[in-house]
């Protein structure tokens, strides 16, 4: 069985964005980059499947510059992925979701995979599209936002989160899945495994190697804007907590008019 996991390197969740006024570019040069947290669930799930049956090979795939190598080694290869592919092409520096999906579909089209795992969304662009776009491009079924997975022979059963409950979905293999928190607890890499990960193969390819042209973008960001500034906090003071609570309720009802 072959499993592919598509992973993205993103700015750390601690990242602060200091944008004083609208600007055509977002300066990301100082950002610390890590594995997208949702992709860690996808990696962990792939490795668990590998550990539970014979003959499973897990390939991590990413589109990004060579700086992703450390993340690939530490968070993918050192926790159990067997090999990795980096699509590193300057023509993709500003690729949008549709373009990334086209490139990933080209990588995934080189050999048959039984399962292709994605994170639910990347926490920089917050789009949650790439997995579903790739599934359609490959002509495969997908189940998005999964929180539970049972793999059968040639089929799978997954649970996905919906408002106020969950859906139980059955799909045939090969299949694309996008992974949500709750699916598993990702493990941390051990120091010896990080050392050994250096021995695992990482293939670097360009669009030309994949036999495609760099795909055109469908969307363009014209301007980045900071969120609107908030006013100062009004602290409610009173002789005791109960009185403060009553005053707060009055303010919310009469001043803010939100209750």
């Amino acid at each position: 069985m072959k499993i592919a996991v598509c992973v993205k390197q993103v700015p750390d969740s601690e990242t602060r964005i200091n944008l004083a006024a609208p600007a055509p570019e977002l300066d990301q040069s100082g950002f610390t980059r890590v594995l997208n947290p949702y992709d860690a669930y996808a990696v962990e799930q792939a490795v668990r499947i590998k550990e539970s049956r014979e003959g499973v090979e897990v390939t991590a795939i990413t589109v990004g510059p060579q700086t992703v190598k450390e993340t690939l080694k530490k968070d993918c290869l050192a926790v159990g992925c067997d090999k990795a592919v980096i699509v590193d092409d300057p023509a993709l520096a500003k690729a949008d979701h549709a373009a990334i999906a086209t490139v990933l579909a080209a990588v995934l089209g080189r050999e048959p995979y039984d399962l292709v795992l994605f994170g639910l969304k990347a926490i920089d662009g917050d789009a949650g599209q790439v997995g579903i776009l790739v599934a359609q491009k490959l002509g495969l079924p997908h189940v998005s936002t999964i929180t539970k997975l049972e793999l059968g022979e040639g089929s799978l059963k997954a649970e996905r989160e919906i408002e106020g409950g969950k859906e139980i979905v059955e799909a045939s293999l090969p299949c694309v899945l996008t992974c949500q928190k709750g699916l598993n607890e990702p493990r941390l890499p051990s120091l010896p495994n990080i050392m050994k990960a250096g021995m695992k193969p990482i293939e670097t390819v360009t669009c030309r190697d994949l036999g495609i042209e760099a795909p055109a973008n469908l969307v363009t960001v014209k301007l980045y804007s900071p969120p609107p500034a908030r006013g100062a906090c009004k602290l409610v003071e009173a002789e005791d907590p109960a009185a403060a609570a009553r005053e707060l309720a009055r303010l919310l009802s009469e001043e803010a008019k939100v209750i």
């Binding site: 964005i17 926490i123 917050d126 973008n217 969307v219 363009t220 960001v221 804007s225 969120p227």
Partner: peptide, 23 residues
């Protein structure tokens, strides 16, 4: 069209345009 959407979980907004006839 110009479509405004939060990115980085609302730490910033992006105003997006598109090149296809439909979005």
């Amino acid at each position: 069209w110009e479509i405004r959407r939060p990115i980085f979980a609302g730490k910033c907004f992006a105003d997006v345009t598109f090149s296809t006839p439909l979005a």
